[in-house]
């Protein structure tokens, strides 16, 4: 079996107003899934921001799931970075 080494899920953020809950887990290729209040309207912008943050962190391939509740760009970026750093630290984080 070629089980991926990183199957744990790391999370950051909340479902409170103006926030988002970001979940990150290992994947064969970068993947982004968005749900929530602004998913339809701002999908492109959210994907772009997530991509920028992951690139800045030189991130390995991961699947990013965002449950958005009206987070502005700066909040989304902070939550993605926090979730990725937790993912990197491993399951105990």
């Amino acid at each position: 079996m070629n089980e991926p080494a990183t199957t744990h899920v790391a999370q950051a953020g909340t479902l409170e107003s103006m926030d988002c809950l970001v979940s990150i887990t290992g994947a064969g290729a970068r993947a982004i899934e968005i749900s929530g209040s602004s998913a339809a309207r701002f999908k492109g912008a959210i994907e772009k921001k997530i991509g920028e943050v992951l690139d800045t962190l030189s991130a390995k391939p991961v699947k990013v799931t965002v449950q958005d509740n009206g987070a502005i760009d700066v909040v989304l970026g902070a939550r993605v970075e926090a979730a990725y750093r937790r993912f990197e630290r491993g399951p105990s984080a």
Binding site: A12, G13, V74, V75, G77, A78, R79, E81, A82, R85, R86
Partner: peptide
């Protein structure tokens, strides 16, 4: 603490 520190830093940068 870790998530708040990143959030506050980015809000300050804004």
């Amino acid at each position: 603490k870790d998530t708040a520190r990143i959030l506050v830093r980015d809000i300050l940068r804004r």
